[in-house]
Design a protein around this nucleic acid. Structure first.
Lengths: 354, 354
DNA sequence: TTGTAAGCGTTATCAG
DNA sequence: CTGATAACGCTTACAA
């Protein structure tokens, strides 16, 4: 609701006051801030001193109104429930805020209004209110309505997660296939010949890619590979954790028991731990090797500690911000995706087969 | 006419265009938006139709400049590493954005610049640039430099986490003691008489409170209680997970073996699982009961599923936003803290003693 | 290099 | 209830 009364001015030092204190005009202060090279060094010093002394910062609203630059990037938070938060909300967001800050931008969080879960309307609102210079989208699907809509609006954007061939290629992503291929090679190097994969929510492109990467590399190396895992559950696989465990247990009881399992997430790896133990086997050297994905803090609390794939969150965030600002500045929108490498963090859970 | 500014104007429907389309003046449109009661109904309809048709939204920068209201709340993200993200970043942030949105506010994320980890400077910048109407602080310590500084600046703020008696009491918090007391009563009701507590990073007030709440209720009920857990580690206890497990194992081997363990976080509960199993015991009914704290998705992936304390994230966020906006509107800053109850989610990990 | 003038889009004031 | 006028604080032309 719009408040009626006039708002009290906080300390609110204005450019005028700085100018007076430095004995120059408003515009000289503005120049000192926005084009320092145009101001004589000694004047610049004087102005900067006054700025520091008064603790002056330009009013961002006034600046935005005049210049058109909002110095703010919008992050469309994935639609999900606080009780089952998106893994990206932790970790990636920190990296994004840091990367944006380093580029002089702030990050504005937004989501579709609670209940009405229409991301398109949320984008429309934010853009129409001219609150951001660009948009960061995450958990992007191959044909994503958010991508299509942002492109239609003509607002600069970049996505964490690749888009299909028909969509604009303004994405940054990790190499999900490559990451799982590295996992497979790691396991193969340890001597494992029969390996299993545990996935979930495989309608999500990144989960499908991990599975595909696993199977492709296993085939290439001539390993015996089998993949299990249900579709349909949420991205963190809340639904049928129990049945997933059952699938792994069945494999472990089968004739050609895998000696190693790669999982599509750290939580799924935990399911593998449970299945392995339930079958009276052990995880790690001398037992069943297990790997996860995401390198969450969970990995370090498991025994043995979980080998996992670490995402280059800082590099992803920096690349997203960079591409976004290229578009904002009107430089040629590269129009190409960027795939960044992951890092395999080897811990006790992956060792030689027993 | 002035030349087009540096920046290309996006669709940018202005109030002027709406006024022309509706056949009224700018101010009538403004009134229709900000004080609809002052506009004749039939005129209002016409204006609203034009607004809808043109997809008009007021330019937030212009509006802010004029009115002083930023319609934005700043969230000072806890200082930590993306690789070891703060648990609040997931879950709480979703709830906060929703609550803010319901009150017509957006959420601006900010952190101290990477490297320079001074939250005070970050607050100064944001406030000086007049980018927000108020601040949300989290993971607040009893004597917190952020609280003191925000109070000194006179900027409206509210904190998730209570402040000490010398500080302004503009906090919302969960009842950490009460939550652990409920856990203790739950375990006692199941028949447990010897119970253990596993904590970590107990220099953090909320962790200390959980421990204290545990011990107090155990004493009140005449139970035999013992607490273990190191200080000094990060909030997620990355440091010495191994030694924590060792402490629990030692207790399990001791003469008066606890039949139940409450942990200060879900990850610590996982450590208890490991310790229990390492001692050849089982978790859950017939074995050692275990409870966690936070109700993260991890709980549902453990076997047996972990009993845990769920935080009322939506209520917390709503209360924080409400108190913040009270201050923004200049209404009497309540000056009192608000403690919200948690919810014990009972699952398979807590059962009758073996 | 610096100062002058104008206006970004909106809302508050005060006439009609 | 509506319409003209004046700011909010800043940055971009342009003149000195």
């Amino acid at each position: 609701m719009p408040e009626g009364p006039h708002r009290p001015r906080r300390g609110a030092t204005t450019i005028e006051e700085v100018a007076r204190a430095a004995g120059v005009s408003r515009q000289t202060v503005s120049n000192a801030l926005n084009a320092p090279r145009r101001v004589r060094p000694e004047t610049l010093d004087r102005v900067n001193a006054a700025i520091r002394e008064l603790g002056y910062q330009p009013d961002q609203s006034a600046r935005s109104l005049r210049s058109g630059a909002r110095r703010t990037l919008g992050y469309l938070a994935p639609v999900d429930d606080p009780l089952d938060p998106n893994p990206l909300m932790a970790g990636f967001l920190e990296a994004l805020v840091d990367a944006a800050g380093a580029a002089g931008q702030r990050v504005l969080l937004f989501r579709p209004g609670q209940g009405a879960a229409d991301p398109v309307a949320a984008i429309d609102e934010l853009v129409a209110a001219r609150q951001v210079d660009g948009l960061v989208l995450a958990d992007v699907l191959h044909e994503d309505v958010r991508i299509a809509h942002a492109a239609r609006l003509g607002v600069p954007f970049a996505s964490f997660g690749r888009t299909g061939p028909g969509e604009p290629q303004r994405w940054v992503d990790i190499g999900n296939e490559a990451a799982m291929a590295e996992v497979v090679r790691h396991l193969a190097a340890l001597g494992h010949r029969r390996i299993g994969y545990l996935g979930a929510a495989e309608e999500l492109p990144w989960m499908a890619a991990r599975r595909a990467g696993f199977l492709a590399e296993a085939r290439r190396l001539g390993l015996s590979a089998v993949a299990v895992g249900a579709s349909g559950a949420g991205s963190s696989g809340t639904a049928a954790a129990g049945s997933v465990v059952a699938s792994v247990r069945a494999l472990l009881r089968g004739p050609d028991r895998p000696t190693a399992f790669a999982a599509g997430s750290d939580l799924l790896a935990l399911d593998v731990y449970e299945a392995v133990r339930a079958e009276g086997l052990v995880v790690g050297p001398g037992g069943v090797a297990v790997t996860g994905f995401h390198d969450t803090p969970l990995c370090r609390h498991l025994h043995p500690a979980l080998t996992s794939v670490r995402l280059p969150l800082r590099a992803i965030a920096t690349a997203l911000v960079g591409r976004l600002l290229d578009q904002v500045r009107g430089e040629t929108a590269a129009g190409e995706g960027l795939e960044l490498p992951t890092e395999l963090v080897v811990r006790g859970s992956s060792g030689r087969p027993g």
